[in-house]
Design a protein around this nucleic acid. Structure first.
Lengths: 221, 221
DNA sequence: CTGCTATTCTTTAAATCAATTGAATATGGA
DNA sequence: TCCATATTCAATTGATTTAAAGAATAGCAG
């Protein structure tokens, strides 16, 4: 019976490690994070990660064998999506542990985002409260297609490239909060620069739809 | 600048994957889960996993390089512990995804636990409610040492081996809920058998201190 | 049926990883 | 100091994983 328990543990952890192994590659983690934003084709994922299609297809097979993603076919194109919100949560909590435990992550963020408190802005929870109760103007600066797949409640869609031309649409009397794809996305940082240069009170929200959803909050559309 | 973003993403996911790689081995997942129950020495972990000490030591080094565990020395002995509750949560949510997505896990649980609904008893949330409000007798059937490291609130310590001899200490008029190390631990199953054979109304709670803590609930001592 | 596109499969070589063994280190006690 | 204990280190082996590149497949348009 002790041997029996050993066998149980070994079979079980063997299975659990299938999920772990799927999370063991940087490319696959990036794919999972992207899929957390919405369904994508193999080609789109390959372009976004700047990798050969065959390579991305391989990684997607690995994720599919671990049942972390599912597929849907339309014509010759195959669309990948996360197998459920639990998968997205798992990736977010892995990233959270990495941020918490690995000093290197903060170092990289500071280097690339040129922002001392890029990862932990002074009062994120307070900011989130105001985003949720609608007392600030929320700006989604991602491309229109991503906005269409899901966005923070009441967010306005003004992609970064259009921001300068469409400033008139952004009310001047209220504080503006810009967000994009997540804590490591630079679009919102640049949007805040532009807004401030034009006299707005503007802040960056350092999370995206993936993190929003993983807090258990609803997205719009 | 697009190249810059690529470099940012690659550096970041490289770091994130350090955590993923640490989770990619069955042995390491088992070690993490055990450490979620409390601090352990290398020797104790080696015995519990029925592996050579050197092998376990190696795995622990890997976990330490990923900053998932920390150490403390007392004399010649080195004690390992999880680096924080977030690590324990990560392991629990990985197991949750595995249970949810991999049919094999349920299959293994049914085979070894001889219990059709071992993994998802009919009304776990209701049972938890009663455990939390104290309207049932909660029995911790793990060894005394583990009880001493942390237990569910108001739990009585009656290790499985002592149960038959100490039945008199368990009130007959109230329903009894037994728990042990987690959903895949057989101690509580056997305790329930013994209790029922002796006329008790007894149920198994299919979670342990690790899962309890990861729900954000307090442990005793 | 033919060509075209999107994706997957197969094969290769390089890299990494796991388990094992024996040696090395550190601590505490005789 | 010497010995016993607990842990780590180093080197070896075999197995797995990776990226890459070309061949193969599936669906669609003509």
């Amino acid at each position: 019976m002790p041997d029996d328990n050993r066998l149980l543990a070994e079979s079980l952890y063997e299975q659990f490690s299938r999920i772990g192994k799927a999370l063991a590659s940087p490319k696959r983690l990036e794919l999972l994070y992207m899929l957390g934003q919405g369904e994508r084709s193999v080609e789109a994922l390959a372009k976004a990660t700047d990798s050969p299609v065959a390579n991305i297809s391989q990684h997607l097979q690995v994720l599919r064998r671990a049942r972390l993603v599912e597929t849907r076919r339309t014509g010759a194109r195959i669309w990948y999506r996360l197998a459920g919100p639990a998968v997205s949560n798992l990736v977010v909590s892995l990233q959270a542990v990495a941020e918490q435990r690995l000093a290197e992550v903060g170092q990289i963020a500071r280097t690339f985002l040129n922002d001392a408190d890029a990862l932990e802005p002074v009062d994120r929870e307070e900011l989130l409260r105001r985003v949720r109760d609608g007392s600030v103007t929320v700006l989604d600066v991602r491309p229109h297609t991503e906005y269409g797949e899901g966005r923070l409640p009441r967010a306005l869609s003004v992609p970064l490239e259009e921001l300068t031309a469409r400033l008139a649409e952004v009310p001047r009397n209220r504080e503006v909060v810009a967000y994009c794809r997540g804590p490591y996305c630079v679009l919102a940082l640049k949007a805040v620069e532009i807004l401030r240069a034009n006299g707005y009170r503007a802040l960056r929200l350092d999370l995206g739809v993936v993190e929003w959803r993983s807090r258990g909050w609803q997205l719009e559309i």
